[in-house]
């Protein structure tokens, strides 16, 4: 492989890993809710979300492993990478907190993925386009679920409004990362594989404002600090999450499960 071709592949792998890791970590977080939700019906709903995200992660990590060509499958990528090798958004690794926190996190991710997957469905990378098209259908439902809950919680009781506004203040600081392009995004955009990331922001921002209005919640000021989860710089939460998730494959090297 020529040097530019190798660099392109590395960027391509990294790009797909970002998507896959974001789905995986969010799926892992949502899985923590199963059996502990605020109503039985919500347990089932949250489990459905978790299953969709794990499903997306499997498709994306498998693809990343194939692109990489070093024989790593979905499990090698999920269970045998350290936190700095993970490329998920820092938003999704944040703990579940209370239900308001989980819903706000979910709604921020869903509204972001909605824009992103719509664009990726037209990617020059046919494999990625197919995965995005499948994920888009799931995302439309996720967004329906999370935006519906955002409005219920914002409009519901004094307590629910307070908790939800608090969750929003808490998590908003991670949104700076959602549409901040770096060299990999630019390279993928130039190759027709990815959309221009910053270009997706206006539509996202509009949807966010409409939902916040419906929920009677206030949009926090934009963050000054920019997190860099997709560059491998995470919050302290991620390594704890990985320690738990990766425990078995690491304790029994080479074992099959």
């Amino acid at each position: 492989m020529t040097e530019p071709a190798a660099a392109h592949t590395a960027a391509h792998v990294r790009y797909v890993l970002r998507l896959g890791d974001t789905s995986l970590i969010l799926g892992q977080r949502l899985g923590e809710w199963i059996g502990h939700g605020p109503a039985l019906e919500e347990d089932l709903g949250l489990a459905n979300l978790a299953l969709d995200f794990i499903g997306q992660a499997r498709l994306l990590l498998t693809y990343a492993g194939e692109l990489e060509g070093r024989g790593r499958d979905e499990d090698a990528l999920a269970f045998l990478r350290e936190a700095p090798e993970y490329a998920n958004l820092t938003l999704v690794e944040q703990p579940n907190g209370d239900f308001a926190c989980t819903i706000v996190r979910q709604w921020l991710v869903d509204s972001w993925q909605l824009q992103l997957y719509q664009a990726l469905a037209g990617s020059a990378d046919a494999r990625l386009a197919a995965i995005a098209e499948k994920a888009l259908k799931e995302t439309r439902y996720h967004y329906r679920f999370s935006s519906g809950w955002l409005v219920r919680l914002g409009d519901g009781t004094e307590e629910s409004r307070r908790r939800t506004q608090q969750a929003l203040e808490e998590l908003w600081r991670f949104t700076g990362e959602l549409f901040a392009p770096d060299a990999i995004d630019a390279q993928m955009h130039a190759a027709g594989i990815a959309p221009e990331l910053a270009g997706l922001r206006p539509a996202w921002s509009e949807a966010i404002d409409a939902d916040l209005r419906a929920a009677g919640l206030a949009r926090p000021a934009d963050p000054s600090y920019r997190w860099q989860g997709k560059q491998g710089v995470h919050t302290e939460e991620l390594s704890h999450l990985l320690a738990e998730m990766q425990h078995l494959p690491r304790a029994y090297p080479g074992a099959r499960w």
Partner: peptide, 18 residues
């Protein structure tokens, strides 16, 4: 669920508990 040793097992276990 959070410690299932493969992604396939994790999905199956989530679906079963669900």
């Amino acid at each position: 669920i959070t410690r299932a040793p493969s992604l396939r097992r994790k999905a199956v276990l989530m679906a079963k508990v669900q």
